[in-house]
Every structure is written in C-alpha cells, then in structure tokens.
C-alpha cells in the first residue's frame, strides 16, 4: 500500500504512469478507505489476519491466492478524466489475456446494489467487475489525488479457505495446477503488454526510483503500519 501511494505521488507530481503486479506474503485483509474496521463486521476466521487500510474506496479484499495490480495515471492523460472508463480500459485487456488461456471471463454488465453493502469486495457487484460463470474474479478501486489516479485490483485465482464462498477462477475452470510462479509471471507480463497498448504508452520495465522507495518507506513507517490509520474510520 505504501508503494502504491508512492507511485500515485509520482503520477501526481511527475506525470509518471506505472503498472505494478504483486502478491502478499501472508493472507491479508485490505479495507476500503471509508470502511469501518470493527470486529463485528469481520468473520471470526479472519481475526488473526493482518489488516491494512487502502487509499482507494470500495469493500475489503482478502488477499490470498490472488494477483494484485496497481496502475497509476497522471492528470494530463485523457483517461484520468473518467473514473468509470478507467476501470473498463484496464479490465478489457485482462479479458483478452485470460481468454487466450481458455479462461473466458467477461464484464458483469449490471451493478448490484444492496442497502447494506457486504464487507468483502467480492460480495459486491459492480457492472465493470470481471466474472467467470457469474462469479466475481476481479474487482478494482481507485483513489484520485491532484487529478492523478491510482487504481488497484485483485484477480482471484484460487479459492481461499478464509472465504470459501468466493470460488477462484482456476478452481472454477478446473485448472488449479496453473497456480505456479511461472504462470503468474507470464500472466502479469502479458497483461502489462496489452494494457500498455490499450492506453497507448510504451512499456518499459523499471525498478522503483530511490525517491519512490524513500517515500514508500516513510509511508510504511508513519502511516500504513500505524493503528491510527488502520482503525481510523469508526
């Protein structure tokens, strides 16, 4: 989360567009920015899991057996003008890449609204979600700062024992054997290429700059590891 915010700052202050793929060392719950962090909202099964608050909105994500991405776009890119269109622009190429692997996902197409939104993002329904046979396998959320946007999302690949009611894409497709480092790396690379093409920017592989690492380190220490941040919405 700290690195994602650091990349958002680079987008806002230096007009840098970035795409990052990552996984989590331990199963972790990331809360939507405005979500309450109250024990009664959480399942007992999750009580020992780490929790971190995101900058972006939406519901909580259980990061386990999934692939997370974060994408930043500066204010001077036309795509930064439409929040809904940005979801579609990033999700569409993922449909194409997954289809090439015989994983036929599609947009949900309709939004589902509830008086009380479920705690987990995967229990909520937005028309721009990606679904496989009706089950949500990818959802994204955004944060806009000084016109720049960070959008991050989670591709649910395997069913998590912490949320067995949300089937993973590879479980549904009976392709669980694909959940290997090599396949995940290939998927990230292919998705990066088609997303770069979709936003009409050249793709260049690069490590974080010293400045981005330093800012991320400060954010990790002073914000994302602090109870004051993670429990602040009550």
């Amino acid at each position: 989360m700290a690195i994602d915010e650091s990349l958002l700052e680079s987008a806002a202050s230096q007009n840098i567009c970035s795409l990052r793929w990552y996984r989590w060392k331990h199963p972790t719950i990331s809360l939507g920015y405005f979500q309450k962090n109250e024990t009664e909202q959480k399942n007992d099964v999750w009580k020992d899991l780490s929790t971190v608050r995101r900058l972006s909105g939406g519901g909580a994500i259980l990061h386990h057996h999934e692939l997370t991405y974060s994408f930043t776009i500066p204010a001077n890119h036309p795509l930064s003008k439409s929040l809904p269109d940005l979801y579609i622009t990033i999700h569409k190429p993922l449909i194409d890449v997954l289809s090439a692997h015989h994983l036929k996902v599609e947009f949900r197409g309709v939004s589902i609204t509830a008086e009380t939104e479920p705690f987990l993002c995967f229990g909520r329904g937005d028309e721009r979600d990606l679904v496989y046979h009706g089950h949500k396998i990818l959802g994204s959320a955004q944060r806009r700062r000084r016109g720049a946007i960070v959008q991050h999302g989670s591709l649910l690949l395997l069913t998590s024992e912490y949320a067995p009611h949300f089937p993973g894409l590879l479980n549904q497709a009976e392709q669980t054997g694909l959940y290997q480092e090599e396949f995940l790396t290939q998927l990230a690379e292919e998705c990066s290429q088609v997303i770069a093409k979709a936003i009409n920017l050249p793709l260049k592989s690069q490590n974080l700059t010293d400045e981005e690492l330093l800012l991320a380190s400060h954010l990790e220490k002073d914000k994302y590891s602090q109870a004051a941040w993670n429990s602040r919405k009550k």
């Binding site: 405005f34 972006s56 909105g57 979801y87 994204s140 955004q142 944060r143």
Partner: peptide, 11 residues
C-alpha cells in the same frame, strides 16, 4: 474533505 463514488475516493 474527501468523497467516494464508484469505488473511487477523491480529495
């Protein structure tokens, strides 16, 4: 202040 819409938080 901050607002949220379509899962997007804006300053």
């Amino acid at each position: 202040g901050e607002v949220e819409s379509v899962k997007a938080v804006s300053d």
